[in-house]
Design a binder for these strands. Structure first.
Lengths: 334, 334
DNA sequence: AGCGCACAATATATCGATAAAAAGTAGGAC
DNA sequence: GTCCTACTTTTTATCGATATATTGTGCGCT
């Protein structure tokens, strides 16, 4: 490992001069600078980031902590990365597997030190656990749960998105719409808020929002959704529309519907939430509420950047707007 | 920031005693140990990982460098993570956006220091660039390109996978199969190897492997594939099967076929490569060559682990076997 | 010639931990 | 009572950089 001291010796200067050349902190005479740069090239020197970090207290690195590297989070992360890099910092992803303990660990002082800032997709932590998080480190939370006031937070307009999707299907003729993967939990959660939107849309149209039409999905995978959907079909419960809590769930539903000979959108309309890349291409095209990755990423990185620049004002809670993207899985779409 | 020195003062011992208690290196008397632990609790002390790293030269962290956080890589990363964690280490993802310069930067000494080992998905780098990578740091390359002998490498059996898929479609009646997203580049690349497999299968069955049936796709997105597919259809080139170089490409093709009124698998059979999660659920189910994430992850982590344990033998080049998963997009599937 | 000033380069202290060597403390054997 | 050994604990040096203070150098001005 070649150190700054080796470069200094080779160039016949002090370590600080090398540091000053590389960081352009204090001015260095041109001939000296050239000698240093030549030595750097010759030896192939590269700064030891760990040492710099220890001394300077800065890593120029931001962590995005996600429950899994899959799907929604992968897509969101791809949006976040360029924004972080545009500010001269570096982005790394960490995974918690939606495990509360691991999420807390990710927020532990020890790990936070490694980064100048942290974006955390809250999946497993509840309000009480998050309330215990006290740190000076810039943090922005992402995700569809309630969070303490003192932490910055970006979430989606879940309720309004679900309402849009449901209302759209009602307008196009559906009268009995399943809320697949939704729930009645008390806490503000993604599945609860989206159910509320479904309910709202039903009521608004003068339709019953029968709790029997709220169908839970075991683990929010396509497989779980497919199985739940098959059970509903087998049960004989009449329905002519499905609002799926996510596109992943919608895909499972689509699979079950196809296998059961139910035609989309003729017999059953289908809408999802997130507008994953694939949803555009899966025939007949899945109508979906766009999760506004761009807006979410921009808002989150903006809040984070502000904190990293020293801002200490009160935390903000941003609700990113969403819009409905109509495709072939609902009538009147492309 | 509470340091080890603060804990030491509170417990009335030296810094080294605290270190010894926390790391269980040298034995410490029980009463002393208890006092130290009490102080740690009381002050909420957590070790400074940066300082430890600088001194101990170990981060207990492995980086997985991928071209993008999406799809294939996200799924693979989710497989890799538990294997790394099982060895008491931590995994982080970094992104290069398939940019050769950024990939080289990810391999720069400076960034390598931050990790005990690196898994690198080679997308943009060619043989010559990789040849310049000289480092003592444990590295394992992943991906479907040629790499220098001195670097450990895990790749898929691309040629045989493509052959399996193509042969399967031929067996089920296809006679004119497109190789969508494949190419004739000289270097061993994913698109070339898979084309070779397609060619091989055609020849084996006594069919012509007409270069006109090798259709490039601009950027290997579903959108690009869809457009390429629509052009082929518009051109009037007769075909009754599509081997898509990836499932993402297959999805684009499926979209184009559906919009053109061509039925899968009745008019056209379709097979992809990667067996993404979604492929199982997209009606009618996309027949795909399973990318064997588990095997790839296991082999790669195994090679990395071996290096991190001090093994210095010659590099290995593993070709992970693949298998065909037959679904509804080819005849005779589910 | 003498003085001061601007600028370049160096010396010193420090970030927070760990490895290795040294020192302190008992207890047991003779 | 002395000495040795075994076990705890502390001391010292170090990882590789950066921030601050200090020293050194050349030049203009009177």
């Amino acid at each position: 490992m070649v150190r700054m001291a080796d470069v200094a010796r080779a160039a016949g200067v002090s370590v600080m001069t090398v540091s000053n050349v590389l960081n352009e902190r204090l001015p260095v005479n041109e001939p000296t600078r050239a000698r240093v740069m030549a030595a750097v090239e010759a030896l192939g020197y590269e700064v030891n980031l760990t040492a710099r970090h220890l001394r300077a207290g800065r890593t120029d690195t931001v962590a995005f902590v996600v429950p899994s590297f899959h799907d929604y989070f992968g897509e969101l992360a791809d949006q976040v990365a360029p924004l972080i890099e545009a500010e001269g910092r570096h982005l790394v992803l960490e995974r918690t597997s939606a495990d509360a303990e691991q999420e807390m660990e990710a927020l532990s002082v020890a790990r936070l030190q490694m980064y100048d800032g942290v974006l955390l997709s809250v999946a497993g932590l509840d309000l009480e656990q998050l309330g215990r998080v006290r740190t000076a480190k810039p943090i922005v939370l992402l995700g569809e749960r309630d969070v303490p006031d003192h932490l910055n937070h970006v979430r989606l307009a879940n309720e309004s998105g679900a309402r849009l999707a449901t209302a759209h299907m009602i307008e196009r003729g559906s009268r009995r719409i399943l809320a697949l993967g939704c729930s009645f939990d008390a806490a503000h959660m993604m599945t609860t808020d989206r159910r509320a939107g479904w309910e709202h849309a039903c009521r608004e149209a003068g339709l019953a929002a029968d709790p029997a039409y709220v169908v839970p999905v075991s683990d929010y995978t396509s497989l779980g959704a497919r199985e739940a959907m098959l059970e509903v079909i087998a049960s004989g419960l009449p329905f002519d529309g499905v609002f799926a809590v996510t596109d992943i769930v919608a895909l499972g539903a689509l699979s079950a519907l196809a296998d059961s000979g139910l035609r989309v959108p003729v017999d059953v309309q289908l809408a999802g939430f997130d507008n994953l890349d694939m949803s555009r291409f899966i025939p007949p095209g899945i109508t979906s509420v766009d999760a506004n990755h761009e807006g979410v990423a921009e808002a989150a990185v903006g809040l984070l950047h502000r904190q990293m620049s020293g801002w200490t004002g009160p935390a903000e809670h941003v609700v990113a707007p969403v819009r409905l993207v109509v495709r072939g899985s609902t009538r009147g779409g492309a």
